[in-house]
Write a protein that binds this DNA or RNA. Structure first.
Lengths: 130, 130
DNA sequence: ATAAACCCTCTAGTTAACTCTAGGTCAAGT
DNA sequence: ACTTGACCTAGAGTTAACTAGAGGGTTTAT
């Protein structure tokens, strides 16, 4: 089993070493090992966990709540139901975000048409008159 | 032509009066009229402009940049090309966000399955062994 | 005419999620 | 032995987008 340094993990996951240390300080990755002198040693499974963390973050979940999820993970099977519920909630959140973004896209498309036709005509006036 | 108060507009657009005054201070709505004593008077067209602002905000555009767009709008036809380009960029940004969110959704769905089957089995162990 | 319910400005405070600096340790190469 | 580069912690600073409070004017209903 091989280990990765914090800067290797940062590069791989496209985030900064500062961010990784911040996540550690906030309790998102309590399972990361250390050398006797304190240097963090990341395993493959730690990187996978960070990917889940990034996924939850991208659903709009704040770090404090992600920390709660991580704590549940280390509690074992007794928290299975909670963790399942959490992902169902996140699924609903993402669905809502997708709906919102699609509405946004519609308006943007309208504006693209508006400006394309205005440019064709050379003036915005065509949309304002009759 | 009728006018709306700041709190009416806030209610209609589902944001706070604080936020509206903040937008005004940041130069997003310089066209809003005032009574002689300083009270803001919002027209229907101002509400429409605020909807565009909300739309741009939901694409992830920061307020400072939206302010630039608003300034272009008051420059008339000479900024048509810039404004068109801006919306094309926003369209690309939203497309990227949609792609990202769909990837997130996929992982969430995997996790939902993971936990549903784990709950059926009564233990997470089924996913770790074999 | 007076109190309630608005409105205003200005300024300070809040929050999340980093981001950076200072000061120090440690392991490897020359 | 010594320099280089990566690592560490603690804590201060940053940024965006509000949010709230103080202090004060105005409009409306009784």
């Amino acid at each position: 089993m091989s280990y990765y340094s914090i800067s290797e993990v940062a590069k791989e996951l496209n985030l900064t070493v500062y961010a990784l240390r911040y996540y550690d300080k906030e309790g998102l990755i309590p399972f990361v090992e250390r050398t006797p002198s304190g240097t963090r040693l990341f395993k493959e499974s730690d990187i996978e966990a960070l990917k889940i963390i990034q996924c939850l973050k991208s659903t709009g979940m704040p770090i404090k709540e992600i920390k709660g999820f991580i704590a549940w993970c280390s509690e074992g099977d007794s928290s299975l139901q909670q963790r399942y519920n959490l992902f169902l909630e996140r699924k609903a959140a993402v669905e809502a975000q997708l709906a919102e973004l699609n509405k946004t896209m519609e308006l943007i498309n309208h504006k693209c048409n508006y400006y394309r036709t205005a440019l064709d005509a050379g003036t915005e006036g065509i949309h304002k008159i009759g």
